[in-house]
């Protein structure tokens, strides 16, 4: 009998056949462990709203510049993939691609309004998708999440609306946006203000 002073958790020779079901909420890779308590996919409301917003963004940018629109379409695909594969990294890539698309559309001289709609819709789509991922991971699809998602979506739209209102209003007031450098300086002030917070 091989004796040791301290046995290694009583486990010698071989592993047990099947371990007890892992119910640790922090376990990564929910596919490996059949967690029958919950469905860790993002809530349906978040997915649908996010994809609709991404489609709106694509449509808005396509109206300005088809090339930019195509790239934003690619971003929509990436966002969709990120939602279904539950990967926040894919979502980040998606929003990055979308911003490139919008920048290209703007570079080729798109009108301000569709660009703003595209930008806000893209931000909304990403924000809701990412929020949905975290809610799905922590709470799951089957739980009641509607209120949470709705509040988050509402706040995001509010912020986007206010930001667009201020920026667009300033650009109109500053004389149709003719002196771009002046606008940029104004913006620099805004950035300073932003970094003053925390």
């Amino acid at each position: 009998m091989g004796r040791r002073a301290v046995s290694g958790r009583g486990r010698e020779g071989d592993e047990p056949v099947v371990a007890v079901t892992d119910r640790d909420p922090e376990t990564e890779g929910a596919d490996l462990v059949p967690d029958h308590e919950r469905d860790a996919r993002p809530p349906t409301l978040a997915v649908v709203a996010s994809l609709v917003a991404a489609a709106v963004a694509t449509l808005a940018v396509v109206l300005v510049a088809p090339i930019g629109g195509a790239i934003v379409g690619l971003a929509t695909v990436a966002l969709t993939a990120g939602l279904f594969r539950r990967s926040a990294r894919l979502l980040s890539w998606g929003v990055g691609i979308g911003l490139v698309g919008i920048a290209i559309a703007g570079y080729f001289g798109g009108a301000i309004e569709p660009l703003l709609v595209g930008g806000v819709a893209l931000a909304f789509a990403w924000d809701l998708a990412d929020h949905g991922l975290s809610v799905g991971e922590q709470v799951g699809r089957e739980a009641r999440t509607r209120r949470n998602v709705a509040v988050h979506a509402g706040t995001n739209l509010l912020v986007g609306g206010v930001a667009v209102g201020i920026a667009y209003g300033v650009s109109v007031a500053a004389g149709g946006g003719r002196p771009v450098a002046a606008l940029a300086l104004l913006l620099f002030g805004g950035v300073l203000l932003a970094s003053a917070f925390r």
Binding site: I112, L115, G119, I166, L183, L187
Partner: peptide, 9 residues
């Protein structure tokens, strides 16, 4: 100017 305004947003 469109991009600058977008940046502001």
């Amino acid at each position: 100017p469109g991009l600058v305004v977008l940046g502001a947003v």
